[in-house]
Design a binder for these strands. Structure first.
Length: 96
DNA sequence: TAGATGACTCACA
DNA sequence: ATGTGAGCCATCT
């Protein structure tokens, strides 16, 4: 299960983000967004998985990003050309 | 080993 | 528009 989450995360193209719901849907259960969040949270191999590309259904960034917090996550997204406003991204443009 | 919790989301009152 | 309840899976206590 988590393997699928990581796999999908790796397929996320540069400059794009995905929502928990989206991942849950791809992984199999649309209602498993919560589980997805947990999987990514406890992800030790986050250097191989762009978990900073994962945002809430409204484009809001994660509350506790393992790589240094929500601010670090914002920086990372901006580094990919993603416009982050008030810790939120435009899913209309960057959502997959 | 079993029960509770959590980086979430959606539906209904 | 705001608030509550349900459903998933991995980890923690």
């Amino acid at each position: 299960m988590k393997e699928k989450v990581f796999a999908f995360l790796k397929t996320v193209p540069y400059g794009k983000v995905v929502t928990y719901g989206r991942i849950a849907e791809v992984v199999g259960n649309k209602k498993a967004a919560r589980a997805v969040g947990n999987i990514i949270h406890t992800n030790r191999d986050f250097f191989g998985v762009p978990c900073y590309k994962v945002v809430s259904s409204k484009g809001k960034l994660s509350a506790s990003y393992a790589g240094g917090g929500i601010e670090a996550q914002k920086e990372r997204l901006e580094s990919e050309g993603i416009e982050v406003i008030a810790y939120k991204v435009d899913l209309k443009k960057y959502g997959s």
